[in-house]
Design a protein around this nucleic acid. Structure first.
Lengths: 194, 194
DNA sequence: GTCTATATCTCGATAGAC
DNA sequence: GTCTATCGAGATATAGAC
């Protein structure tokens, strides 16, 4: 049963290293060294590097689903749930300024590689998009999915410029602008119903 | 003098391949095959792969500078120059949906790699940022640089989601939203002066 | 289930003939 | 200035002892 723990640890370490260094740049040797196992042992758990990537994406899908579920459960208002999403940019600011967004950077890398796992990676965007659309719909906004995509787009744009310029003040300013935009869209939805 | 042509061709091909497949993923063998020269010949022109990267960035800096200069020269109004920027998303839509934005994806990759050329690559963003700030300032907008960064941010966000979802209609919708946002900001600047 | 040892490939880079 | 030949390092992957 030690095997299951080792496998989970490999996936967790690969998840971190794929994010920090990119999928292709990360080698088995690097993962093995971080997990403290022999390179060869590796293939007892995974047949190929692509299989590890699939496991990493599955892990991210599970952890993201759990995160969004906890927000749905523990945050009362849809408006506050939208803020929880925006606040990711501050909570993970240091990592984002060095490695970008884990979802966006992986999707772009896999697209360039024409990798079969590209669509699976895009599934991570779907989780956030659906969550955001839910909140906009609950707030009475028409075209909730379009608003969700727009907010998702902004988070990606901010992540890219944050990685380029590494300016926390810039990120904070864009977060404030996102909150303003959300409030305006809600007001617009309310006005339309009146 | 054939040497100079070969060197320029290597840089042009490397530029394309770095964009399409990523910097690290692109091998000398791939570039050599595309240029139709022997792998070894390569090192007559460049001492290392990093040197090719530097040349590619320099080439992009030059071509981007030339593009922006032509816009400054040939497009009369600052407002129309902003639209020229937005229209890049449509003009390069197919490539962006497959490979992302050449500027943003390179900057993010080099950041993950902790590559020395990262800052040079960010210089490409500076060119666009300065161009956009110029136009907003000419239109009488306060905080022209912040507006420029915001528009740049949106172009990056749209590029990432375009690569993920590959939906031209989504890109078109965000382009229209960018145009609306520009007009609102200009109106705000005009109102502030009145 | 974990290890060592190794096979095989491709990479970036070098040496030297022409 | 372009070529062939080749190096050493590091990659993915396999075989087999324990």
């Amino acid at each position: 049963m030690r095997g299951a723990e080792t496998k989970a640890e490999i996936i967790a370490v690969a998840d971190r290293l794929f994010y920090q260094g990119g999928f292709e740049h990360t080698s088995f040797a690097e993962i093995a060294a971080a997990v403290n196992i022999a390179r060869g042992n590796f293939y007892y758990h995974f047949k190929s590097k692509d299989e590890i990537l699939a496991a990493v994406i599955a892990r991210r899908m599970a952890s993201t689903t759990a995160l969004l579920e906890s927000w749905r459960r523990e945050i009362d208002s849809p408006r506050a749930r939208l803020s929880a999403f925006v606040n990711i940019l501050a909570a993970n600011g240091d990592k984002i300024m060095r490695y970008g967004c884990p979802v966006g950077s992986l999707a772009t890398e896999l697209s360039k590689l024409m990798h079969a796992a590209r669509e699976a990676a895009v599934g991570l965007f779907d989780l956030f998009r659906d969550f955001l659309a839910e909140q906009f719909a609950a707030l009475g906004c028409a075209k909730a999915e379009a608003l969700a995509l727009h907010l998702l787009m902004r988070s990606q744009g901010v992540a890219v410029l944050a990685t380029a310029y590494r300016d926390p003040d810039y990120v904070a300013a864009e977060m404030a602008a996102m909150e303003d935009w959300i409030d305006r869209e809600i007001a617009r939805g309310t006005a339309a119903r009146a």
